[in-house]
Design a protein around this nucleic acid. Structure first.
Length: 519
DNA sequence: GTAGGGTTAG
């Protein structure tokens, strides 16, 4: 209905925003303006409108008009045309304009580099950065910022380091935005030490710099350090904004640091961000990880606007806290509210089915996943294997696993776990050997399934060998679960002396909790 | 009179 109305109004292209009703009349009006300065301003305005509403067809008409009326000698107007094509997602046309421009300047190239970045064509963005220099245009601080963003998206550390050196040489080392882009690059590349060095050496830092530092720590598994930076930022009198809060809450979630999370929540409310979708989602996520489902729900219910991401956070919070039924209810409500499930919300709903052993509901979801064409997603395949395994349907778990195009550690763990939990110990070990031969590194969960598989297959000595190898060959610390499983195996085999020896040699904190469980 | 950095769910 809505699109029909747009068509009736004369819209020819897809996209939102406010359109120019009659482009021909608009161009005529511009031509009637008394001087070149006002005509240029008006053309720029029209191109900007097209860019904002992604009206590519109208934009092309304006471009054609400019060419026909010899305005194409103006680099300024050409740059607006480049921006329009870039914002409309037509990178080839944007590129062609720059390539044909006799007097392309730094703006022309910077707009093009940014357009490539925005459309995920990072390699082309980097190539443009070098091309502009071959064309004799020196990169500005904006060029560096955009090209560093491209490197960050690709996690291209070596390329980024070369550009870092070039930025220093060009005298942009002390520039706050360039510095923040460098910090972000190192964070995204997992090189936290480089991020810290950049931060320390920056002469000026603003709230964006601090937030980027908190994000870099939070996203590299250094939640504690992220919160230290957050506190230090407050001490420095820098006022946090929604970005800062989201990153700090992410750190709290990863640490399950409820108290710190609650403190940040208080500040979020104080600054008026609580009902904002992204901040609210971060709060829901944090409370979910801290096992405070009621608090998560309170935030979720108060959000002004919900998107599929915050629905996903709430559904996951339920699924992971033993409220599978509520997770599935929310999943249905999300769809009746008009949001289409994606691979993440499907995975959480399957997770809920797995925890409820709700095979029928899981099969129903599987059918919708096939219909929506998401079956090929690795995360979906993993969740399906896990769901079928936990629902006792090993046959379908095998089928889904065998059809997966790409298998990661989680896929192998799900398959090995499915076999082990359903009493197919030998098959689990067979999958484990296949996994090893494909070069996939096992983790502590893999070994928990392997020990369970040994239990079912009655392989006592193999279990001991696997147990020792967890630490000796794979450098993974044995968990309480590993100990419990092996003690159980030894106990069932009547090897009580061995079980007792194992308990005696356990790390203290692990042993105490094991003994408690045994009693 | 154009271009720039940091955020959310599995």
């Amino acid at each position: 209905m809505d699109s029909a109305r747009k068509l009736a109004a004369g819209g020819r292209c897809r996209g939102g925003g406010s359109r120019i009703k009659d482009i021909g009349a608009a161009l005529g009006n511009v031509e009637a303006l008394p001087n070149q300065r006002s005509r240029f301003a008006a053309f720029a305005f029209l191109l900007q409108r097209c860019a904002n509403s992604k009206a590519l067809c109208d934009g092309r008409l304006i471009h054609a008009h400019l060419t026909r009326h010899n305005y194409d000698t103006s680099t300024y107007l050409a740059n607006w045309v480049v921006k329009m094509y870039g914002d409309c997602g037509s990178l080839a046309e944007a590129r062609a304009v720059v390539d044909c421009l006799p007097n392309a300047n730094a703006y022309s190239w910077n707009i093009l580099i940014k357009a490539y970045c925005k459309n995920g064509l990072c390699r082309q963005a980097v190539e443009c950065f070098y091309k502009m220099q071959r064309c004799g245009i020196a990169p500005t601080h904006v060029s560096f910022v955009s090209v560093l963003e491209a490197c960050a998206s690709m996690a291209a550390l070596e390329e980024g380091k070369l550009i870092h050196a070039a930025a220093v040489k060009a005298g942009y080392e002390g520039h706050v935005v360039v510095g923040t882009a460098l910090l972000n690059l190192y964070g995204k590349c997992g090189s936290l030490e480089d991020a810290r060095i950049v931060f320390r050496q920056m002469p000026n830092r603003d709230v964006v710099t601090w937030s980027a530092m908190i994000t870099a720590c939070a996203q590299n598994g250094h939640g504690k350090e992220a919160l230290e930076w957050y506190n230090r930022m407050e001490e420095n009198g820098i006022r946090a904004n929604q970005f800062t809060f989201v990153s700090a809450l992410d750190a709290c979630a990863s640490l399950a640091a409820l108290e710190q999370g609650q403190k940040i929540h208080t500040s979020v409310v104080l600054y008026g961000y609580e009902r904002q979708a992204i901040v609210g989602t971060a709060l829901v996520h944090m409370y979910g990880k801290c096992r405070r489902l009621e608090d998560a729900r309170r935030v979720f219910d108060q959000l002004h606007q919900r998107d599929v991401v915050c629905w996903g956070a709430m559904i996951t919070a339920c699924a992971q806290n033993g409220h599978g039924k509520e997770a599935l209810n929310l999943f249905s409500r999300m769809q009746s509210d008009g949001f289409k499930a994606n691979h993440i919300t499907y995975a959480s709903a399957l997770d809920a089915c797995a925890s409820l052993a709700a095979l029928e509901k899981g099969q129903e979801l599987h059918a919708s996943i096939v219909d929506s064409g998401l079956e090929g997603e690795t995360g979906i395949g993993n969740a399906l294997v896990d769901m079928y395994g936990k629902c006792g349907n090993l046959k379908d778990a095998r089928t889904v696993f065998s059809r997966m195009r790409h298998r990661d550690l989680v896929s192998w763990n799900a398959m090995i776990g499915a076999c082990a939990q359903n009493g197919h110990g030998e098959e689990a070990l067979d999958f484990f050997h296949q996994m090893r031969s494909k070069g996939v590194k096992p983790d502590h969960l893999t070994f928990l399934s392997i020990l369970t598989a040994c239990k079912h297959a009655g392989k006592v000595d193999e279990a001991r060998q696997y147990f020792v190898s967890i630490n000796e060959n794979h450098g993974i610390a044995q968990t309480r679960g590993h100990y419990m499983c092996l003690i159980d195996i030894l106990g069932r085999a009547g090897r009580l002396d061995d079980a007792e020896d194992l308990i005696k040699n356990m790390p203290l904190e692990c042993g105490a909790s094991c003994l408690q469980s045994l009693r």
